[in-house]
Design a binder for these strands. Structure first.
Length: 122
RNA sequence: CGGGCCGGCUGGACGAUCGCUGUCCGCAUCAGCGGAGAGAGGAAAGUCCGGGCUCCACAGGACGCGGUGAUGGGUAAUACCCACCGUCCGAGUUUUCUUUCGCUGCCUGACCAGUGAAAGAAGACGAAGGAUAGGGAUAGUGCAACAGAAAGAAUACCGCCGAUGGCCCGGCGGAAGCCGGGAUCAGGCAAGGGUGAAAAGGUGCGAGUCUUCGCAGCAGAGCGGGCGGAGACUUUUAGUAAGAGCGCACCAGCAGCCUGGCGACAGGCUGGCUCGGCAAACCCCACCGGGAGCAAGACCAAAUAAGAGGGCAGGACUGGUCCGGUCCGCUACGACCCUCGGGUAGGUCGCUGGAGCCGCCGGGCAACCGGCGGCCUAGAGAAAUGAUCGUCGCCGCGCCCCGCGCGGCACAGAACCCGGCUUACAGGCUGGCCCGUGGA
RNA sequence: UACCCGGUGGUGUAACGGUAGCACAAGGGACUUUGGCUCCCUUAGUCCUGGUUCGAAUCCAGGCCGGGUAG
């Protein structure tokens, strides 16, 4: 039951962390989201959100953030660990929570495989 | 009951489960765990004003900059609020004029008199209410396209006149001159036409009645009406060549006095004869105005530190001094400073108890103020306040009603805090004012 | 968070407060065997709402949108 919790240290908070994830330059996307990822050397996932002003007003942007966080919180047991993720919504239209819960683990598995291939090659 | 116009309040409710951020209590060395209770708004928005709070500064002057602008009050303060004044608008009411139509008057009548209706124009008054950046236009400078003669103390375009002085023509006369005509020169006038948003404030009157005669008009005579003459009457009835800007009255404006009001101002009386608009054009007057902003500011921790070039006791550099990237003057520091290069950008406080909210009483027309009692009501920081399900509520659509099914539930998210303004907003509740009509 | 600019046809730009012009583009026509060039004509605009003024793209206020600056 405690696996659905989402504590503060699991937030991606520092500008240096964000920069590290962006400079790893590994991302996947579908019609709702872009997902950047990077290994973090920790036994858990960390999540960062970036919502542009183009997505709408403050209410709309808060809604997008909360939907993404809720999807992450509820689908985390299905995902691999040890990664830092950054989620960027692509459209101002609101997706449903069920769609996000289906899409998010798929995208994270995709980007994790990408990183593993990268690591085994080097 | 119908119509019109102003506000005020509210802005989904309940339950279950999974989560997030503070507070308090308990456990725990720490990490953390458990329980209780709290957790977006009327606009949190735009950042348009005003303050609190924090740091810096507090010797000025010249020249400049920004803001405000009826009056009285409220407030910490305002460009805000309340009350009041002026101006404009406002359903409508009323007066005058014009046009059209109808009826009556004499045999008939586009034109006369009386009367009625409709439309239009102008003026005055004007409910509730609305707008108002509302000091100054004889301190100065400036603007007004096109049209029009003329756009500010102007002018004579189309026009009008023939009194006055010439000129020309004709007649009479011996002559002086006289009489008649012309609109030719000088001159006089500004009514009517026409322009414009605006033409030197606006409107009206400057005679009426009766008797009688003539003329035109009509197919014809008469009546009514038109033009001209004579006489009489009425309390008065102008002037000229033509006329008015002349005279008179009323209204508006101006000045003075009186009354009322704290005041803006209003009312009355008298005088005089009028020199418009724009200052959200420059400007003038009066008043006001330290700067920067919680990324303010304070503390702790961490990191870099003999890399290069340049300036400087002839006082550099930096800072201060008014609101000021200017100038002058004054002043502090008294040996370091500037550029390139390099390094940090983590934590704690500020951070929510305040011009606070609610109730009662009192003062005030009101905004608001005072007293008493009660309450604690977000505090994040790559940034919490969420998600799912169920029941109900509201709205729309579909089916024959009950009911069922489907879809939707406004505008919008705290970032130091308040007071205002402005803007956005589905629906719901509610108060007041005025006009008209009907009943008791 | 604080502050500063700007908005004119589809595009780029002019316009002392007095009729909104110009160029390119689009459409039509003429010339040409056809196309191009050239010429002529047409369509289309002051971001929105109020106010000042006789009159507003211009002046003023509020809103909307788009840029930019500082840390």
């Amino acid at each position: 039951m405690s696996s659905f919790r989402f504590r503060k240290h699991e937030h991606l908070r520092r500008a240096a962390d964000f920069r590290r994830v962006y400079e790893r330059r590994r991302s996947v996307s579908d019609r709702w989201l872009i997902v950047y990822a990077c290994e973090n050397g920790l036994p858990y996932l960390r999540l960062g959100l970036s919502v542009s002003r183009k997505m709408g007003g403050a209410v709309q942007r808060n809604r997008l953030r909360r939907l993404c966080r809720e999807a992450f919180r509820l689908t985390r047991p299905e995902m691999p660990t040890g990664l830092d993720l950054i989620l960027i919504p692509r459209q101002p239209e609101l997706p449903s929570l069920a769609e996000l819960k289906q899409a998010l683990p798929r995208l994270v598995h995709q980007v994790a495989r990408k990183l593993e291939r990268e690591a085994s090659k080097s």
